[in-house]
Design a protein around this nucleic acid. Structure first.
Lengths: 191, 191
DNA sequence: CACTTTACATTGCGACTGTATTGTCTCGTG
DNA sequence: CACGAGACAATACAGTCGCAATGTAAAGTG
């Protein structure tokens, strides 16, 4: 075997360039040539690591989801269910610049996946897992009149919606956090 | 002046074709030729009514927003604030096929507007107006511990998030309505 | 030292894009 | 009835797209 190169590393380098492009100029600006230029390599190299454009898109999407999951796992701190849920959901909100970038990429992919169903299954599974985890936490600590599954669905939808509006800068970060806390109050009871 | 043609009508015909295309095959499939073919006309005619592609996109986006606003206005029925809010938010959720289609188009435009800021201002204004109206309704009838502005933000974000997940068929329509009702319970107090 | 496999770079092709140009037909007005 | 303006249609153009083919350099293995 000749020249040893870390495939995973190269692909992540290219996917990073793709994300930068998608966030600043939209998914429609993502082409083999543009990704190559953004990464500072030749288009031939991009083709070498991704046999087709769809393969590149799929890899980038998976990478975004992996990063979110990784950050979520890192935010898993011991505490009350409410604290756990809050820490988790705060990781999903685009509250800093890197997460804003990922959020834009995610939004672009969401619209992309709406048309390419093959891309949607991963997103669905991730959301289902998150919903299940949230429901467990709510079940453990919520008030008596609260349906855990519905509350989890509501929390996830709220964070999605807040994230959407944060991306279009409809209000500040502290407002979004306040809205989330208000919702947590409603679900877990005022503390 | 020669041959009289209703400009508005023709443009809406073309924008309808554009929406069908955007919903089924994504905004990336929207080209002058495709829109023309979908509408069953020549590309020259499309150019005649829209001098540029961006102009066509902008018109279609405005049309989508107008339709949502029109439907919302039609749903304005006399009743308690909670009933008014519920009826209004139910119009935003993609609960039937035509609204699913519009939802997909809206999602595509959301991602599009994230990159073309000129398109985003209209979306922002519409959301602000809606938020203000919701806040007024909440202020008129909510419990004492509820901040109207925050509750309005939460409701709008919830509906956005629910709509997003409805579009990707993550759960049934009745679940989304149930989640909305649960939230209304929390905001307006159990009835 | 051969030899093969991998890692790229370069180039070319056909299809498609938005836009500009030009032509034709048809109507309403003077 | 002439005529000019609007309503299209057809085509051309430069650019970009994904992808395939081909070439070259380097490194590990026998």
């Amino acid at each position: 075997m000749p020249r040893k190169v870390d495939h995973r590393e190269r692909r992540e380098l290219l996917a990073d360039a793709l994300m930068r492009l998608a966030a600043t100029r939209g998914l429609e600006a993502v082409s083999l040539r543009h990704v190559a230029a953004e990464a500072g390599v030749s288009t031939g190299m991009v083709q070498h690591y991704f046999r087709t454009k769809d393969e590149m898109m799929g890899f980038a999407l998976e990478m975004v989801m992996d990063r979110i999951e990784e950050r979520s796992r890192a935010a898993l701190t011991p505490g009350s269910p409410r604290e756990i849920v809050r820490a988790l959901l705060l990781q999903i909100l685009p509250l800093d610049e890197t997460r804003r970038l990922e959020g834009h990429v995610g939004l672009a992919f969401l619209a992309y996946a709406a048309v390419k169903p093959a891309m949607a299954v991963g997103l669905r599974e991730a959301a289902d897992g998150m919903r299940g985890f949230l429901a467990d936490q709510v079940r453990a600590a919520a008030g008596p009149g609260v349906d855990p599954d519905r509350a989890a669905t509501g929390l996830l939808a709220l964070v999605d919606g807040l994230g959407l509006q944060l991306l279009s800068r409809q209000f500040g970060e502290e407002d979004a956090v306040a809205a989330l806390d208000a919702q947590l109050d409603l679900v877990f009871g005022q503390s």
